[in-house]
Design a binder for these strands. Structure first.
Lengths: 226, 226
DNA sequence: ATAATGAGGACACAGATTTGACATAAATCT
DNA sequence: AGATTTATGTCAAATCTGTGTCCTCATTAT
């Protein structure tokens, strides 16, 4: 199990450091952003953030806006830090999809408890995670692939290969690399075998098969759009 | 759907009336208790309480004690009303299984929002008495399975296997995973044994047996419809 | 106590599917 | 054009699943 990654967004560096210290002591991995814009940059860059702690008052882009934008793409749990007694904001937050509130000033112990409780709560319901790549919907848990709504059948190897491609979009992948990741690391067969599987995968993906680009003399690359 | 039943426990009758008024306006049915002992009496008398709002400070038996005792029997959602800044209590509450906090003084709007959010949250996770999966009705407590109204006989293992499938619908399950969950985790027998049980289960489920899909080279998946 | 029954598990064999190799055609680079 | 590299069709080998059957153990009936 990898470390759980938490993004802290607050314009006061003292506050960020405080939170960071306590959460790191709990074994979480911490990312920091000093305003909403920076937070969104980090959010887009790193798909594996598990929780966001968000201050409401920030320059450039406040917490509500960040929350709203994040919610367009993700269900990642969000904790809002608010100055007290802002009822209207709290209601607004429920609509926006805030999961928890912590009122400043707060004690670090409460922070840690809330983070733990929220992560636990979310973990039990997380379920579906399907990745969308230009109309190709891959649901890893269901082991199912849908293209424009229609389910297609893939063999296990094909499924694994597609998953590997989609999880490494826009990256040029050498045959060796593909072999090492999709096949057992101790597989020493013909690298040309990949071609065969790519062939099949392309044909099963139909017109979307051309998302798998050939990089001559090198390998393959999965990329949406022409 | 019956009315949702909420138990309010507070020693101040003014406070109870305030909460009652706002929640009744939302369509909830309200019960009142003026201290912990009374609350427990009501709790034992009425098994169908959907949510408890609990003041911490009360004579005879305080909120923490009530919470603790209730949690020995039930997972019913509990909201705690606290005077502010009682950090230690809040932490204590997380351990005891408090679901939400509301700090006095609070606005009725917040109260209503929290109650709604909590009920919604819980509703999605509550364990139904019997689960319905495409006409297959599994009653875990009665250990009984009905298909389109007709009861069918399953052996213990078959029942456990079916339950596991149904509780993990649409998820691809490897044989290993099934083994670890349906059999004792320290069972090291033949994985093919699962096939045998799946075979029997399928045949006993009749035409609904094809809900159990084979994922070639991977395991099985339970999924309703084609 | 003994026999009958049924569940749980193991296993082998046939049939089905997937996989990887190979030969050849097509494409790309220099 | 010549040298490489990739695409594709074909096919046998490897792998996996479905099913019938057998064995053991425990429970129930006689």
């Amino acid at each position: 199990m990898e470390k759980i990654k938490i993004l802290i967004v607050d314009d006061e560096s003292r506050m960020r450091k405080l939170i960071r210290d306590f959460l790191e002591r709990e074994g979480y991995q911490i990312l920091e952003a000093s305003d909403g814009v920076e937070a969104m940059d980090l959010f887009y860059a790193d798909k594996s953030i598990d929780l966001i702690i968000l201050d409401v008052m920030m320059p450039r882009m406040d917490g509500w806006e960040v929350c709203k934008e994040v919610r367009e793409y993700s269900k990642v749990p969000i904790i809002m830090l608010t100055a007290r007694a802002e009822e209207r904001n709290e209601l607004k937050g429920f609509e926006l999809g805030v999961d928890e509130y912590i009122t400043k000033p707060f004690s670090p112990k409460i922070l840690v408890a809330r983070v733990g409780a929220l992560l636990k709560r979310v973990k039990n319901m997380d379920g579906e995670e399907s990745i969308d790549a230009g109309g190709i919907l891959v649901n890893k848990t269901a082991h199912m692939v849908t293209i424009d709504g229609k389910t297609i059948d893939l063999s296990v190897k094909e499924f694994e290969l597609l998953t590997y491609f989609i999880e490494n979009q826009k990256i040029a992948l050498s045959r060796e690399k593909i072999l090492n990741n999709v096949w057992n690391y101790d597989y020493f067969g013909d690298a040309r075998t990949i071609d065969t599987h790519v062939k099949k995968l392309r044909s099963k993906l139909g017109e979307k098969g051309n998302y798998i680009k050939t990089i001559w003399g090198m390998g393959y690359k999965f990329e949406v759009e022409s």
